[in-house]
Structure formats: structure tokens, C-alpha cells
Design a protein around this nucleic acid. Structure first.
Lengths: 167, 167
DNA sequence: TAATCGCCGATTAATGTTGTCGTCGATAAG
DNA sequence: CTTATCGACGACAACATTAATCGGCGATTA
């Protein structure tokens, strides 16, 4: 069980969109070329990011993507939710409502009225994970990368996209 | 993306193993009949729980399963890990180590030596979820069910398994 | 008006999920 | 001592999902 690789693709790409000049865009072609990932698949990920209001797409020649809001207002969870949806990780098929005892109609009604403790616990655990992701923004990630990577490599990266940026 | 339904099956079944007399067991047949789930599939889940040391299997006629240790020492996470494995939910295909800049050998070596901030963040978030699950034990679940369910339904459930319990 | 971009739906190969089936060895009962 | 019943295990199958590819669409720019 794993989230799709699209989450990783998306987050890595969004980093490059943070520092570009206002009104500039970066195309799928450049993003996929830089990272060495599938162009068509990446474009699907960006369709989802667009629908979620994380990026804005500019169609036509010299088109591409840019962030739709401040990187301060985009959290890791926003990206995960955009790509993977908000479906809970833990399934609840309500098996407690299909137990042997539920052959009794009255008991079944009573069971369906009360929550499933196991599922509640799972949702609580998931929520804890989401809260960590909600507290990490793209701005934070950008600063963290400044701290971890060499200034030269960050500069080279920006240069790569600056050369092909569509202004 | 979801954890398999086996987690839910397993946790619900383990509840019934808590309150049985010492040295008694409950068979797959009774568990699957009570919950209305597939017998063969459930037996696979219990194979995993056995390998993980959560339950003990008794082979032969009148065989079945019982908890291998105190329900105080079995957490939700133990069960999830037994059924699903400990593989992280978030994939990291190390795409940072395959970027355009990594065509430079020296840069590639440097990149591989430094951690991926995005993946670190994901693992931190997952760990937060696991910690919630680690703090919930089968004993806690049992008490919670006592609180939420009617005494009658709990009694009926125990009765169901007592009738077929193998002592 | 032609080339280039993102958008979108259909398709596909590989993989994972949710089972089933048949065989095995262990065990209790007749 | 045989037989029926249990769990263990591997093979298999149906179905869904994942990670892509492909082709046609409309928008844009040169």
C-alpha cells in the first residue's frame, strides 16, 4: 500500500515554480526533462494540481504553469490531497454492521447508529499525519533546501529554468 | 491508495480473542461466520498475525487461535504492521538523484550523500500516525467497546464464541 | 496559418488486492 | 488406526489500480 509516485513528482516540481519571476511560467517539457520523468504522466499530475487551485495553467505556445498563490499558502497536504484525493487510508467496510448479531433487525439498527471505534481510531491517526503535512509549506521547503543544498546547485537549478522560462 | 481490508478484518477479530478463557481458542470458521467475511482470506490474515507473534495457532481438530500475549502489549500499529508490512506509505524514488544536474558526476555524488527533505517530511508525518496507533492497545479497544456497546450485545457476542470455543 | 502548448479520454502493461482451491501435516475422536 | 477436522501454504484467478502512452482538441503565438 503506497501513495502514487505522482505526489513525489508534484512536490519536487513545485519547488522550481517558487522562485520564478512573476507572470513567468515553466512548461511540463522542462520540468520532466530536468527530473528525468515521464512527460505525459507528469502533465496528468499537473492537471490535478490545476483543478485543486495550486497552480495556474497558461495554454498556447509559450504556455506552462505557475503557482496560483503564495508558497506560504501551499502545504504538503494540499499537494497530497490534490494528487491522491482525500479518501482515508484505512478502509471501513462497516463489518460490525454485518455481524451475526445483526440478523436481529433491532440490533442491526442499533449497531448502525453507533460509530465504529476501530475506524475512529484510524481516522484519528490519519489526521495526526495530515496535521504534520499541513504545517509544512512550500516556503518552508524552499528555505530548508537553501539550508541543505549548496548555493551553487540551487543557482544552477534556477539557471536551467531561467533559460527556458516563458515570460 | 488504501491499506488492505485485511487490517480491518484482523482488528475486529482480535477483539473476540481477548476475553476467552486461558488456553481456549477460536477457529477461523467461527470468526468468519460471525463477521460474514471470506473464510479463506481471513485465514491468510491470521497467518500473518501468527508470523508477527500476535496470535498463536493451534493445529489439528479443535484447533484455532488465541492471543500470544497480553492485550495490553498488542497495539493497533502492531496489527497494521503485521498485515501490511512496514513499507512507508510515501514512495521516494530518489528523483533528486536523477536530475539534469546529476549528469555532472561530482554533483550526483554530492546529491546522493544528502537526504531528501521531501521524503524526510513524509516519513515524519507517517511516524506521527504510527505513534497514535502505537498508543492504542487491544485492552484500550476492549474497554472502549464496553463503553460504546450495550452490555447485552457484548454478552451475546461472547456467548456466540463460547458455544464453539475449543477448550 | 502552422507550430507549440496544455487538456482530456481511451488504452495498456505491470502490479496489487481479494479472494478461491487443493494439498499438506497435525490432532482429536470413534 | 483410521478418519474427519483444523491451520499452513502455494498456485491460481478475477478485478482494480498504477504508471504510463497515444491521439485529438482548443488556445496561443510567431
Amino acid at each position: 500500500m503506497q501513495y502514487s509516485i505522482g505526489v513525489e513528482y508534484g512536490l519536487h516540481c513545485l519547488v522550481y515554480l517558487i522562485d520564478i519571476p512573476p507572470d513567468a511560467t515553466i512548461g511540463i517539457k522542462e520540468l520532466s526533462a530536468f527530473q528525468g520523468v515521464s512527460e505525459t504522466y507528469l502533465s496528468k499530475i499537473f492537471s490535478k494540481l490545476t483543478k485543486a487551485g495550486i497552480v495556474v495553467s497558461v495554454p498556447g505556445v509559450k504556455g506552462g504553469y505557475r503557482l496560483s498563490k503564495s508558497p506560504d499558502d501551499i502545504s504538503f497536504w494540499d499537494v497530497v490531497e490534490a494528487v491522491e484525493g482525500a479518501t482515508p487510508i484505512f478502509q471501513c467496510k462497516k463489518i460490525k454492521d454485518n455481524s451475526y448479531l445483526c440478523q436481529d433487525e433491532e440490533y442491526a439498527a442499533c449497531s448502525k447508529a453507533s460509530p465504529c471505534v476501530i475506524n475512529m481510531t484510524m481516522l484519528e491517526a490519519e489526521e495526526s499525519m495530515r496535521n504534520v503535512l499541513r504545517n509544512k509549506t512550500l516556503s518552508w521547503l524552499n528555505e530548508e533546501l537553501d539550508r541543505v543544498l549548496t548555493p551553487q546547485s540551487r543557482k544552477d537549478t534556477r539557471q536551467f529554468f531561467a533559460n527556458s522560462t516563458n515570460v
